[in-house]
């Protein structure tokens, strides 16, 4: 019996020490939906921007709907592993997954990754992190015009770091180069963190980053322009590309999708719930403080929205050589 006790005790100790700190007070309120915790799968690893935005939603979800939003990660294949399994999951409204543009458009165009863009049933696109050109605060490039001038004088010599290829950063770089008639060199890094490190360490001249980079590294970097319709509330002094004559509004868009088998009324309900979180002033403030921009594309308009974005992405991706 000794053995039994030991093994039993090992697991008990493990479970208890964790449970002791993992005690979350869950008081279920009587409500039609949801009446149990909702699983929210992030097809990337923890700590990334997809994770952080989901975490922001987490506490508001609990507050508004009385149920926990349980975040789990399914990283791999740049999100493709998660999305290719989405439709095989239970479609009862208690399973949803984060989706990202341009990923869900570009990935299936590259090779067979087990899903097509149209297989994904999105219910809401809730925010985007606008693309932005960022330089080191000590750089002598002071404005977007300086940057364009430098690139014109030194074709190909302007190195710009960015997160990955076929990503919002990369496609923005391709589109901007074409609009400005310049040639810059895009250096892909694994994730925004490494791309910023390369900028701060002067390994590259500039970075194709996001507004969130400006928020996170305030004082160390200078944003030259943001790819938004209007200026970002947190950065009233940074012009938009549009103001400067470049028709570029882009970024990493994030939303939520459900398995195909999810009934219509549940899809609509989820869409409304996420919209409600998005409308919360405190939520908006927190998101904007992190440099994100909010977006309200509900279930009904989502397909049209994705299709419209997809066109621009596909063209840029083809130009960038990411897809054949």
């Amino acid at each position: 019996m000794d053995i039994l006790r030991k093994i039993g005790a090992t697991t008990v100790v493990a479970a208890m020490s964790l449970a002791a700190i993992a005690m979350i007070s869950g008081v279920p309120t009587a409500q039609a939906f949801p009446d149990k915790p909702v699983n929210y799968i992030i097809p990337f690893g923890p700590g990334g921007e997809s994770d952080i935005t989901a975490r922001h939603q987490q506490s508001f979800f609990k507050e508004k709907f009385g149920q926990d939003l349980v975040i789990a990660y399914k990283p791999g294949g740049g999100g493709a592993v998660g999305w290719s399994q989405l439709n095989g999951m239970i479609g009862d409204g208690y399973t949803m997954m984060g989706i990202n543009l341009p990923h869900i458009v570009v990935k299936p165009l590259q090779k067979d990754v087990g899903f097509k863009t149209e297989d994904i049933t999105g219910v809401y696109m809730f925010h985007y992190t606008p693309d932005a050109i960022v330089v080191n605060a000590s750089s002598d490039i002071k404005s977007l015009q300086d940057l364009v001038d430098y690139a014109k004088a030194n074709p190909g010599k302007l190195t710009m770091s960015g997160s990955g290829k076929g990503t919002a950063n990369h496609l923005a770089q391709v589109r901007f180069d074409k609009m400005a008639g310049v040639k810059t060199t895009y250096v892909a890094f694994k994730g925004t963190g490494k791309a910023v490190a390369a900028l701060l360490g002067d390994q590259v001249k500039a970075e194709w980053g996001y507004t969130s980079v400006g928020a996170k590294h305030e004082g160390k970097v200078r944003m030259l322009a943001v790819a938004m319709e209007q200026r970002h509330p947190k950065f009233p002094d940074v012009p938009t590309f549009k103001e400067l004559g470049f028709d570029l509004v882009s970024g990493a868009y994030r939303g939520i999708a459900v398995p195909k088998s999810t009934p219509e009324d549940v899809r609509v309900k989820l869409s409304e719930m996420i919209g409600e979180i998005n409308a919360d002033p405190e939520f908006r403030k927190r998101m904007e403080n992190d440099g994100m921009a909010l977006l309200d594309v509900g279930y009904k308009d989502l397909n049209a929205f994705v299709a419209e974005q997809a066109k621009a992405y596909e063209e840029a991706a083809r130009e960038a050589g990411v897809i054949k």
């Binding site: 039994l4 093994i7 039993g8 090992t10 697991t11 008990v12 493990a14 479970a15 964790l18 449970a19 993992a22 699983n39 799968i41 349980v70 789990a72």
Partner: peptide, 18 residues
């Protein structure tokens, strides 16, 4: 039985692994 159940509980209920 106890070991499998113990780990199952630890992972699915405490660590919330789906």
């Amino acid at each position: 039985l106890a070991i499998v159940l113990g780990f199952y509980t630890l992972f699915s209920k405490v660590l919330l692994v789906p």
